[in-house]
């Protein structure tokens, strides 16, 4: 009897409030805050982002200060030609040295990088916006799908490089000609990719639910479909921007890219290729910078894409 009494003392009837069971104690979730937190939880991202910011600042600020032109003003000043990196001449410090025309390699590289970056940003901005919009409707409407799939089959069977090369031969070399060459058919691959993603999520149940609530198609696209594609779009961007830089370098290298009056990484590499044996630094420094630009863009883009996928936001 005493034992039982003891038990009664030990146990107290718990107070059961059902509203307590519904409470969520985790802190409030915010998408973009989580993206930032997830991105900076990786140490390598600090490095990649740092490199990218330095590259961007140098290539947009340095050309304004250095006054680099492709006219080769020092071509007759033989003393200035092909100075090794780190030389001081006439009170001016040449960190990367000078080239065979007596131009500062440092100034030439950032002027070239600026052109290449602007080209890549313009081309990918055009291709991405056209591609995403067309892709969204392509995936959403079955009638559009029929026509667009045929168009895609025809265009995608022409090799991109071949098309761009032929186009550049016809249109002539130049910055805007190159932008046109890259964007006339470049968007269709992106649109096709987005179309596939839209088809995957188009018939999910939450979209049916929205239809039952009378949601209009533009609202469906902006609220139900595009938010799901954020990380896909960022992934695409991180692939597209570096690839346009590579295309520019490649096309200028084979001589069909940007004209001689505009500085660009590709044209520079082509021009310096002849010095590869005698003065390797003249060739390899621009190549290394081109690689740094594309790699840092790619790493930052890829990791940003990972971070923008909510699956990585779970603690």
């Amino acid at each position: 009897m005493a034992e039982k009494k003891n038990k009664d003392d030990l146990f107290v009837l718990a107070d059961n409030r059902s509203s307590d069971a519904e409470k969520i104690y985790a802190p409030n979730y915010s998408y973009w805050r989580s993206v930032v937190r997830s991105f900076f939880s990786k140490k390598t991202n600090y490095v990649a982002l740092g490199v990218l910011i330095v590259i961007l600042l140098l290539s947009f600020i340095n050309p304004l200060v250095s006054g680099y032109t492709t006219d080769a003003p020092n071509i007759n000043n033989g003393d200035l030609h092909l100075l090794p990196p780190g030389t001081t001449f006439d009170g001016i410090f040449y960190i990367f040295g000078t080239d065979h025309q007596g131009d500062s390699l440092f100034a030439a590289i950032w002027a070239g990088a600026r052109t290449s970056l602007v080209l890549a940003l313009v081309a990918s901005a055009i291709n991405m916006s056209v591609g995403v919009v067309v892709g969204a409707f392509w995936g959403y409407s079955k009638a559009v799908d029929k026509i667009m799939t045929e168009v895609y089959n025809i265009i995608s069977n022409v090799p991109f490089i071949l098309f761009v090369t032929v186009f550049m031969y016809i249109a002539g070399s130049g910055f805007w000609q190159l932008v046109a060459a890259m964007t006339i058919t470049g968007w269709i691959g992106i649109a096709y990719f987005i179309r596939t993603q839209v088809i995957i999520i188009r018939d999910r149940e939450y979209n049916l639910a929205s239809r039952c609530l009378g949601t209009s198609i533009p609202r469906m696209v902006t609220r139900n479909i595009l938010p799901y594609l954020t990380s896909v779009i960022v992934t695409l961007l991180s692939r597209e921007i570096p690839s346009y830089i590579s295309y520019e370098v490649f096309l200028s290298y084979i001589g069909v890219g940007i004209d001689a009056s505009t500085p660009s990484l590709g044209r520079m590499i082509q021009m310096y290729a002849t010095w590869m044996d005698q003065k390797p630094y003249v060739f390899w420094i621009p190549v290394a910078v081109a690689a740094c630009v594309t790699i840092s863009l790619y790493v930052v883009g890829q990791n940003l894409a990972d971070s923008s996928d909510p699956k990585t936001h779970m603690i």
Binding site: R204, Y206, S216, R219
Partner: peptide, 27 residues
């Protein structure tokens, strides 16, 4: 109106509960 079978797939994961519940009201 309709109530769906699978609560895991019938709600828009990228929207707040506020938007999900008010979707019809907005429309």
């Amino acid at each position: 109106q309709m109530i769906f079978q699978d609560p895991a797939s019938s709600l828009n994961e990228r929207a707040t509960v506020d938007y999900i519940v008010s979707e019809g009201l907005y429309n």
